[in-house]
Design a binder for these strands. Structure first.
Length: 641
RNA sequence: GCCGGAGUAGCUCAGCUGGUAGAGCAAUCGCCUUGUAAGCGAUAGGUCAGGGGUUCGAGUCCCCUCUCCGGCUCCA
């Protein structure tokens, strides 16, 4: 009896019944048999030892295949756990998956034992021994009762909990165990044939992580690592990581003198004069663009009676994140969001359907009492300004308003050369408003996304407490994802604040409300932007657009004259009048990433020109000062990149 | 907030097993007068995060607090 399988090249292959993936690879060729790691059958990865199903579409997974890295990283996680269990026999194991750039394994170490990267060499040495031994990964399928007994007997409580959950939630009757050398783990698989493939690995960091991501449960110790098929690839990856670290906005912010932090104002940036110029340029950009899009700018208070926060729901749902104070008789809250203030402002005047949509924009200063452990440079702060806006509109206008926003956001991100990842986040556990409202709100957002052809991922349960949202995310230099823009549909606030407009029927109606921001917080956006650009800001954003470099002290007066001509044309220009060599002045200007370096020597002075060197080294030769002024003005006006 | 690590001059860091702090860059002053990525010299700069303890003696050992870093939870 023979079975037939379909190969990726369209051919069919005949195999004996019961043939394994390894048999299949061997039937195709000896080279493939040696390279084979696993088999993909009808889209599902399986061990090489597993029998091949008749009629399946199969592909042999090798080091070159997509998914092969994830496979050996998962193998590496088992090798890590094996090594850790040898060194710390009383350790409890939990889970150890492959992740984007590597793998981790979470352990509970015995009381009093803590792991740091100083322990990595010993662990890695044990890991190398397991790899060198080329221990086969052996799969075993066991009835859940037997598997449970086995892990219970070994004191592996986390594995027992996992098995109990598999039974309760998925009704499984058997589970699979994988053994490599002395180590056995509850694992779905698949794995490569042996540990030998995990040749190039490195442990990277140790961190805490809650069991099952629940902050009420045990804090486990997570060890992160990565693995590649070759030492060269591993070295190249580690080198890339190091280069990314050089782009860290906290480092660049210090080097370029843009902002500082102080332990006397935790989570709040101090912007230097240069940093403030950059920040203001960004704020002015958004004021200009929102005005062009039909928003009107408004200003609302910082500090409100607690009553406002009770109406909005913040007092119940968000107070932990608010800075609360009081006057002589009343509790007060510093605003963490602009929306309640905007609702009050909307309600202070009557609105006709003819006026809608009303679009309020406010570069609003917000304070949020973020947990200390989450603060991170400019990317997570307690004091920040959002390019916030709220749109009050009719039900019929929602879709076009959301579509208009998606367009607007795309325009802004394009100015900076950023590409974002879009997510639709739906109702969270902690929320206000009934489910019917949420159903409607989620459906409208999805419709607007579809109508504009925006690609997005679904992020269930991550909406704001008052409504679902569409978020735009960017990654920082270390690969962490941060939310920038957002648009959130909210039927709840209009109810709570009893907002109305007069319809064509002369009756009062409830408007819908959209909360939206494109940059998110200016602070976070600048952090991400600095990392994206590696600190090399385009002319229109650069705090110092050009610096005049006289080649000798005797030209300092001419330098001042040239600089002031450029300044009166609107350019942000400095003069380097130090008694230093041109080479030195160039070097310092390069390190400050100043776009235009303008060398002034005797020839230039005589001709009324400056010799232009752009950041990065391009030498454009002598250019008339008027022409330079015009060029800088043009680059600033057009926001050229 | 939780787990782990770290905190020495403005910045980057050295300071072995305890014997009262050092370099480079930056800064200041002077000399040099410079043509596209570091000219030379001198000077100044530190309650070694803060507090408590052990010790004849603490940057170094112990405890507490603060902040920062990496994660986790949370979030723009």
């Amino acid at each position: 009896m023979a079975i037939r399988v379909h190969l990726p090249d369209g051919n069919e292959l005949e195999l004996e019944e019961g043939a394994s993936g390894a048999d299949m690879a061997a039937a195709i060729g000896p080279g493939l048999a040696r390279a084979a790691l696993a088999v993909e059958a009808d889209g599902e990865l399986r061990d090489l030892t597993a029998p091949v199903r008749d009629g399946a579409s199969v592909a042999v997974l090798t080091a070159k295949s997509d998914g092969a890295l994830a496979l050996i990283r998962h193998d590496a996680a088992h090798v890590l756990a094996a090594a850790v269990m040898e060194l710390y026999p009383d350790v409890k194991i939990s889970i150890g998956p492959a992740i984007d750039n590597g793998f981790y394994y979470d352990f509970e170490f015995p009381e009093g034992v803590s792991i740091s990267d100083a322990d990595f060499p010993a662990i890695e040495e044990r890991m190398r021994a397991h790899v060198k031994a080329a221990e086969p990964f052996v799969r075993e399928d066991l009835p859940v009762t037997l598997a449970r007994e086995r892990f219970a007997a070994a004191g592996q409580d986390y594995k027992v909990e996992l098995i109990d959950d598999l039974v309760a939630k998925e009704g499984v009757e058997t589970v699979s165990l994988y053994t490599n050398g002395p180590f056995t783990d509850l694992c779905r698989g698949p794995h490569a044939p042996s540990t030998a493939t995990v040749k190039a690995f490195a442990l990277q960091s140790v961190a805490g992580s809650y069991w099952r991501g629940d902050s009420n449960r045990t804090m486990l110790t997570r060890i992160y690592g990565t693995a590649f098929f070759s030492k060269d690839e591993l070295a190249a990856y580690l080198e890339r990581l190091e280069l990314a670290r050089q782009r860290d906005h906290r480092r660049i912010g210090r080097e370029l003198g843009l902002f500082h932090f102080s332990e006397l104002a935790v989570g709040s940036a101090f912007w230097t004069p240069h940093g403030t110029t950059l920040w203001n340029t960004l704020r002015d950009l958004m004021s200009e663009l929102t005005a062009a899009r039909g928003y009107t700018e408004v200003k609302t208070p910082q500090l409100y009676d607690a009553e406002l926060w009770r109406i909005s729901g913040h007092w119940d749902k968000y107070q932990g994140n608010m800075f609360v104070t009081s006057d002589e008789e009343r509790p007060l809250g510093l605003k963490p969001m602009n929306c309640p203030g905007h609702c009050l402002l909307y309600a202070m005047a009557r609105h006709s359907y003819r006026d809608l949509p009303v679009r309020f924009a406010e570069p609003g200063l917000l304070h949020r009492n973020e947990p200390s452990g989450t603060l991170h440079g400019l990317l997570r702060v307690r004091h920040f300004v959002t390019d916030d806006g709220h749109i009050f509109c009719t039900e019929e206008q929602i879709e076009s308003e959301v579509a208009g926003f998606l367009e607007f956001a795309a325009e802004v991100y394009a100015l900076f050369g950023l590409e974002t990842r879009v997510e639709l986040s739906t109702r969270p556990d902690v929320r206000i408003g009934d489910d019917a409202l949420w159903d409607r709100a989620e459906a409208v957002l999805a419709a607007a996304l579809d109508a504009t052809g925006t690609a997005y991922a679904l992020n269930p349960g991550d909406g704001a407490f008052y409504g679902p949202k569409i978020d735009m995310h960017m990654r920082d230099s270390l690969g962490r994802s941060w939310q920038l823009g957002t648009i959130q549909l909210d039927y709840n606030f209009p109810e709570r604040f009893e907002l109305t407009y007069t319809g064509a029927d002369n009756a009062e109606h409830r408007p819908a409300m959209l909360h939206r921001a494109i940059l998110g917080s200016l602070e976070r956006f600048l952090g991400i932007l600095i990392e994206h650009l590696g600190g090399v800001l385009p002319v229109w954003l650069a705090p110092v657009q050009a610096i005049v470099l006289p080649i000798s002290d005797r030209l300092n007066a001419a330098g001042e004259e040239a600089a002031s001509k450029l300044r009166s044309a609107g350019a942000r220009v400095e003069l380097d009048h130090r008694s230093e060599s041109v080479a030195r002045k160039i070097r310092d200007a390069e390190l400050r990433k100043i776009p235009y370096m303008l060398v002034l020597g005797d020839r230039e002075e005589a001709d009324g020109t400056l010799s232009l060197r752009e950041h990065g080294g391009a030498d454009r030769g002598a250019i008339a000062i008027d022409a330079l002024a015009a060029e800088l003005a043009e680059l600033t006006l057009t926001r050229a990149r």
